[in-house]
Structure formats: structure tokens, C-alpha cells
Design a protein around this nucleic acid. Sequence first.
DNA 1: GTCTATAAACTGATAGAC
DNA 2: GTCTATCAGTTTATAGAC
Lengths: 207, 207
Amino acid sequence: MSTAERLIESARELLWERGYTGTSPKAIQQRAGAGQGSMYHHFAGKPDLALAAIRRTAEEMRAKAEEQFSASGTALDRVTAYLRRERDVLKGCPVGRLTQDPDVMGDPALRAPVDETLAWLRERLAEVLAEGRERGELDDALDPRAAAATVVAVLQGGYVLARAAGSVQPFDQAITGVLGLLTAHVSTICASRRASGTGAEPLPPLS
Amino acid sequence: MSTAERLIESARELLWERGYTGTSPKAIQQRAGAGQGSMYHHFAGKPDLALAAIRRTAEEMRAKAEEQFSASGTALDRVTAYLRRERDVLKGCPVGRLTQDPDVMGDPALRAPVDETLAWLRERLAEVLAEGRERGELDDALDPRAAAATVVAVLQGGYVLARAAGSVQPFDQAITGVLGLLTAHVSTICASRRASGTGAEPLPPLS
DNA sequence: GTCTATAAACTGATAGAC
DNA sequence: GTCTATCAGTTTATAGAC
């Protein structure tokens, strides 16, 4: 791996672990095994290197999410696959955590990938949910945009709860909770079943 | 206000705006209008002052939440009041944001109030939801602990989305979304109504 | 109690040798 | 390209005058 690559990867790790303010150029250089001059040869400075790191992290995050979003199965299957995907829960979200960094949010260039990534996640999830509604998998009462924002928020907030507790338990509970709430919107067939006391039964396969 | 008080209040503001790592003793002193010696006379150092500030913020947060939790009305009324309460959305949660600060999470004393506050929020919300279920307001299918974790996560994640977007819109959408999902669990009466196409009507008053 | 002075380490960057 | 040297400013204190 080239020196520039090692610097970017080291910056990605440190930004995830310690944030922008908590990450010094020196720390990045040491982790990358590079000297001062080497870093300033490849990058204009800390913000420039951070931008490269943040862009790569954002890109990677979208690619991983798209794997679940574009998979086969019902809308709820895909949302469940996304939420239940293996994650480094206690490390938190490498993109979401940057929203707490005033120096990142104060720099339009650094902020843009953060903004775009979370906006893309909401849009893409809204599309998946809207598709599920059109197919008759999901209740018409469900607002795809609002539900999408809720799903992304549960994920971001789940990380916060897990880190505070030092345990994945509250994260898992939050995910379980929102999936349970979404299940109640799985077509009106489900609602009528629940009303007649047979809610525990699975739905029939899709046509 | 005494010098010690001014230092604590200044620390609270700066911890909210810039986090622990991003807040220097010098910045706290300047905002408080106090000298170096003054701060070190009243507090052992940055961690000690931060602890006083974090404890106060945590206490205030619990007190505000308890206002809504212990209010009158149905469980859903109280959860709605809590979620819809006026908030400084773009500033984020002064307690939740500390979970992103490795120096806070690495110090057991600083971490404790953060952990305890978010755990208390989940427990208290679970109690409110369990009470609503016992009263027959909420569906038996709803898991109070999971739903409570979801509600707190939506709040914490909503802040993240709002800060990323630079707008309260995704926060409001996430809240609207989770309240919409919860509404589907408002007693089985609601489910049968939705199944029969009269879901827009309000529920009858409680006995 | 509050102030100024001092200090060792770190931060973010530049200069110039190799 | 990579290195070491240097630097002005900041961070987190401590010391001691008032």
C-alpha cells in the first residue's frame, strides 16, 4: 500500500475512533508509519487528508447499504437485512459521529459527504418502503419518507445508546422495537388478523 | 452568580457546542470571565469541572423528561408530549453527544452520568408504555422495553440527521414516523378499525 | 479567592536537506 | 518522495504574588 493510501486509512480509523478534533496529524502519521513531510507532500493539510478519508468512508457506507437495499425479498425483508446486518455497534457510525464535530460541520467541504450520505440513506430507504407499499406488502397508512427517517434515526440513535451503555443490548432492543412496529404495517391482512386474534401467524407468500 | 457557578455554566455550554476534547480550560475561563487561578482554585482540573457540568446537564435532562412522563393522559399522549416537546434540535443532545467523546467514555467518572441518564430514559419510557398496556390503551403485542429503546434511539438519531442536514426536517420526520408506527399499536380496537377502513377515527375515551 | 508568570508537551504547519 | 529541524500558538497545568 502506498504512503498516501496508508495515510488515508489511518485517518479513517482515527476519525472513527476519536473524531476530527481529537485526531492530530502527528497521530495519523505515526499510525501510517510516515513522517511529517510525507503527509504534507501528499495532502495540503489536516482538512484535506480528512476530506479524502471522509469521502472514502461515506462511499463505502453507501455501497454496503445498497447491498441490502437492492437485494431480493419484500421491502420489510430488505429493511430487516439492513438493520440486522453485522455492525461494529460499539464503535458507532463513522459518518454519523462526524455530525458532533463542530470543525467538520463548520467546513462546507467536510460536511458535504456527511450530509449527502445520510440524506441518500433516507431517500433510498424511502424508495424501498414506497415500493413495498405499491406492491401491496405494506399498509397505505405508512408514510415512506417518515418511516425511512425513523429507521435511519433508530440506527444512529442505537449506536449512541450502545456506546453509553457499553453494550450492544440497547442497540438490539431499539432495532427489535422498530421492526416490531413496522411489522404492524405489513399489509391490512395483518391488521385484520391481529384484530381477530391470530396475529402470531406468518403472512402468506407474495403473489 | 458565583465564579464557580459561572465556570460550570460556561463548561456546560462549551461541552454541548464543542464536546470534551474540543473544549479547553482556557475557553471555559474566558467565557466565564475568570482567570486560570480561579478555575484551579475551585476545581481540580478539566475533568473535575467537566464532571460537575455533565452531572448538572444530566440532572436537568431527567427533570425535563419526567415532566412529560408523569403528566396526565394516555401513555401515547405522554410519549408524544415528550417527543414533540420544544427542543434545540440543531444543537443536538447535550448528553448523547458525549458518547462520541473517547476521553469521556474512557473515564468511568465522566461516563457514569451519561450511561445512567440514557438508561434511566429507557427504563422510564418502558414503564410508561407498560402502564399503557396494562390499562388496555396499547396492544399486547407491543414490547415496552424494545419500544422504549426505539423511542430514545429515534430522538438521539433524529438529532444526528438534523445536524447533518442543517435542518430540523429529518428530525421531525423521524418523530412523525415513530409516532405513526406506535399509533398502529393503540389497542386492538384500532387494528380492527383499520382493517375495516375507518382508521381515521379517534379512539373512544378511556374508561 | 483571584491574578499573572512560567513551563513542558502538543498542534498544525513550513523549510530545506537528502 | 521522504526525512529532520524549526516554529508560532495552544493545552493543561503549577507557582507564587496580591
